[in-house]
């Protein structure tokens, strides 16, 4: 059965989707079969990083959750060439980007259990090793489900006081739901911040291991979600640390 890795943040703008996409590539580069679910249904975006935009007739997660489209028809192969060469595979289950579809989803809602069943159904059909859930920030029904079913929860935050407070709430929820493994990722760390001080503050704020400290990067800002940093800038410190995180998750059998 595939491992479920939920990537979550309490607040928006943490770089959660960017990390989801790049970590998916890093793990697929290790030869894994990975699917990324965009469950940020109110503000989807991870598809942009894969250069994928649903064409008319191409199904999205919304078509499954609010319709009768089979989940395997909502999964699109976005395997980059280096991943193919490494014998990995990568699928994306995007959320709809049309404003009327987003509005319909917010208006009518859906059975969140259908998302649960979709994850495991796709996992079996595609023989996945790993499902990465790119969640909506904050706490709602989808994020509670994603947290409850995750084998590992990656909490992404910036070194910002609001993020420190919000992340504490999300970790409390995760601990109440008995998530087997939680890792904290501090992203967008300014160069003038002392990493050791950040580590100490994180350690004193939460009893959760740090997965990675990822630097704030002008190169990533310039890339502006138009590609996958791990492939465009493979030697960049940000990419190297994401690969190290992937290797750590893999070694811990969490991914």
């Amino acid at each position: 059965m595939a491992q479920i890795l939920a990537i979550h943040s309490f607040r928006g703008g943490t770089g959660k989707s960017n990390l989801s996409a790049n970590l998916a590539v890093a793990l697929a580069l290790q030869g894994k079969r990975v699917a990324v679910f965009d469950t940020d249904l109110a503000s989807p975006g991870v598809h942009v990083l894969f250069g994928f935009s649903p064409e008319p007739g191409q199904a999205t997660l919304n078509d499954h959750l609010q319709g009768d489209t089979a989940i395997e028809h909502c999964a699109h192969d976005v395997t980059p060439t280096p991943v193919k060469q490494a014998h990995g595979r990568l699928w994306l289950v995007p959320a709809a980007m049309d404003s009327d579809r987003i509005a319909r989803l917010l208006r009518e809602g859906y059975q969140v259990e259908k998302l649960n069943d979709a994850l495991f159904s796709l996992s079996e059909k595609l023989h996945l090793d790993l499902v990465i859930i790119d969640t909506h920030p904050g706490i709602n029904e989808e994020t509670l489900l994603s947290t409850a079913i995750a084998d590992c929860l990656l909490m992404v935050m910036r070194p910002d006081t609001q993020d420190y407070l919000g992340t504490a709430v999300a970790i409390e929820v995760a601990e109440r739901l008995d998530v087997p493994a939680i890792r904290l990722v501090v992203n967008k760390l300014p160069a003038h911040f002392d990493p050791e001080q950040v580590r100490e503050r994180v350690a004193s704020s939460y009893n959760v291991p740090i997965g990675a400290l990822l630097p704030l990067s002008d190169d990533l800002l310039t890339l502006a979600s138009s590609g996958l940093a791990i492939l465009v800038y493979p030697n960049h410190p940000w990419s190297e640390r994401v690969r190290a995180l992937a290797a750590d998750l893999n070694a811990s059998e969490l991914a």
Partner: peptide, 10 residues
Amino acid sequence: RKLLKRGLRQ
């Protein structure tokens, strides 16, 4: 909570 959590997934 544990029982109902275990009833999720599959």
